[in-house]
Write a protein that binds this DNA or RNA. Structure first.
Length: 265
DNA sequence: ATGGCCCGTAGAACGGGA
């Protein structure tokens, strides 16, 4: 099965690109972040006509996450959970569900704005609560529900994930407390699917709209697919699809896609 | 040296993103 994550920076604006991308890349599961849509405006019908079921959690103006699943293959999501039960939060940044025997967690981590800011403190608290919740899910005790955590982490885990490591050193998205939390997530029993494979140097998932960021490949790798170690050997591909970033009026993020050999899908 | 764009909510700028 193919699973992907994409921060679309407004699903209202990007819906035609998402539908085009799904036609060209008929993944089984697509996690979306920054839909920026209230639930009544979620394009359920358009996606259903394209063959996808939707579960979603939105709010006005900001944030918003969704999980799309291909009807023909994995069907509709079950056991949907909105948010983190351990962390009451008005910001809609987390949705999880069971699909194809997997526990899929779609996350839009806070940006953090600047190291030392209130938003940075919220980011660290939010991640700590996510770690606490995922570790309470007793991963080892649920071998039949391997966990996949995917989304916009707003963390570049290593200097090779940064176009200009010196300029970004210690800055938000690259600071040590953020990277330490990324490692803590991995230590729950997950693996960064992208790093299971040889990858071209300077491969990123986000490029600033300003300063010709994409043309200069001045980007960061901040969108990730973390896969339960128990199924790591089943991952055959993980790649970042730069093509949508080349379109007119693109999202500033590119989709990340992984192929996982799962029985029956 | 600074900021340079895009989106939503507006119905003009501004907050937020990363």
């Amino acid at each position: 099965m193919q699973i992907a994550t994409w921060n679309v920076n407004s699903l209202k604006v990007r819906l035609p690109q998402v539908l085009d991308w799904l036609r060209a890349n008929p993944v089984d599961v697509l996690c979306l972040q920054e839909t920026k849509l209230v639930d009544p405006k979620f394009p359920v019908t358009e996606l259903a006509e394209a063959g996808y079921e939707s579960v979603f959690s939105g709010q006005p103006t900001y944030n918003g996450v969704a999980i799309l699943s291909r009807r023909e293959t994995v069907g509709a999501a079950t056991d949907v959970v909105m948010g983190n039960p351990l962390f009451p939060d008005e910001q809609r940044r987390l949705i999880s569900a069971e699909l194809a025997g997997l526990r899929i967690v779609c996350a839009y981590f806070p940006n953090g704005q600047a190291v030392g800011s209130d938003k940075y403190a919220y980011k660290l608290r939010w991640i700590d609560a996510l770690i606490a919740w995922l570790s309470s899910q007793t991963l080892a005790a649920s071998p039949h529900r391997p966990l996949l955590l995917l989304g916009d982490f707003n963390i570049a885990p290593e200097s090779r994930d940064v176009h200009d490591p010196l300029a970004w050193e210690g800055q938000v998205l690259c600071s040590e407390p953020e990277r330490e939390r990324f490692r803590q997530l991995v230590e729950l029993g997950l693996v960064d699917a992208f790093r299971l494979f040889d990858q071209a140097e300077r491969t990123f998932s986000w490029w600033d709209y300003r300063q010709l960021g994409f043309r200069r490949n001045a980007g960061l790798r901040i969108d990730h697919i973390l896969v339960d170690r128990s199924i790591a050997s089943r991952v055959s591909v993980c790649r970042i699809d730069r093509e949508p970033r080349k379109l007119q009026q693109p999202s500033d993020h590119a989709p990340v896609v992984a192929d996982i050999r799962i029985e029956g899908v």
